[in-house]
Design a protein around this nucleic acid. Sequence first.
DNA 1: GGCAAACGATACGGTAGCGTAACGAAACGC
DNA 2: GCGTTTCGTTACGCTACCGTATCGTTTGCC
Lengths: 116, 116
Amino acid sequence: MPVDLTPSQALGLWHEVTSQQVQQDGRDLTLRQLAILLEIYLVPPPHTVRGLASKLGVTKPVITRALDTMGDLGLVTRMRDDRDRRNVIIKRTVDGALYLERLGDLIIARGRAQTA
Amino acid sequence: MPVDLTPSQALGLWHEVTSQQVQQDGRDLTLRQLAILLEIYLVPPPHTVRGLASKLGVTKPVITRALDTMGDLGLVTRMRDDRDRRNVIIKRTVDGALYLERLGDLIIARGRAQTA
DNA sequence: GGCAAACGATACGGTAGCGTAACGAAACGC
DNA sequence: GCGTTTCGTTACGCTACCGTATCGTTTGCC
């Protein structure tokens, strides 16, 4: 696994991972969409549209659109908040967890190859 | 610096970097564009449209479009190959090198914060 | 010279992203 | 109750990407 990465090695790792991801995954998420997805899965819930927007410094429609797209892909789901029905709670899905699990494994694998 | 990354930490690193990149950089390159840019800067030249297309498993118009966009952003340049004027040689630029240098530093900085 | 192959760019119709602005629904304040 | 604020979503016009197919140019081959 990667030990003491230099900036050059870090870019090499990014290169390996993005390249492989482009080749093998037909979904081709935007950088923004990926950031949103990671935020949802790595930060403790609950997640709302407004919260994600302010956290990432983008407008609300950007979040709505990203959730539409990733919802169609099965990576996330949305539910109304029953305690405050103005809010929408973003939920994780099994497919989304699998997607990120595969990404994590890819990074490790490439990182290992990188420093090997 | 990152030592012995677990898959979870790897995703955390990706999260930090994509998130910060989304927030601070207005350019918002596609994952494909980023992969192309990294290929150009990290793999020894010469680079051609056809070569990049086959290397990344995409069609030639994808490369042409990406080079158009990144050319407008000043990240790459193109020149005709004088020895075989059918070819186009993709050249690096100072701005492109700076862009990736900043990305590399960002990864290191976030990786350090990640494991700190 | 002339035909086929290779290269990168372009055209086309379609899809998905963007920012700004406005919208309906729900909660809050008085 | 009723205006105001706060949600998330939708509408609009625009830009940029996609894949497939085709184009013009250049080279290679005979």
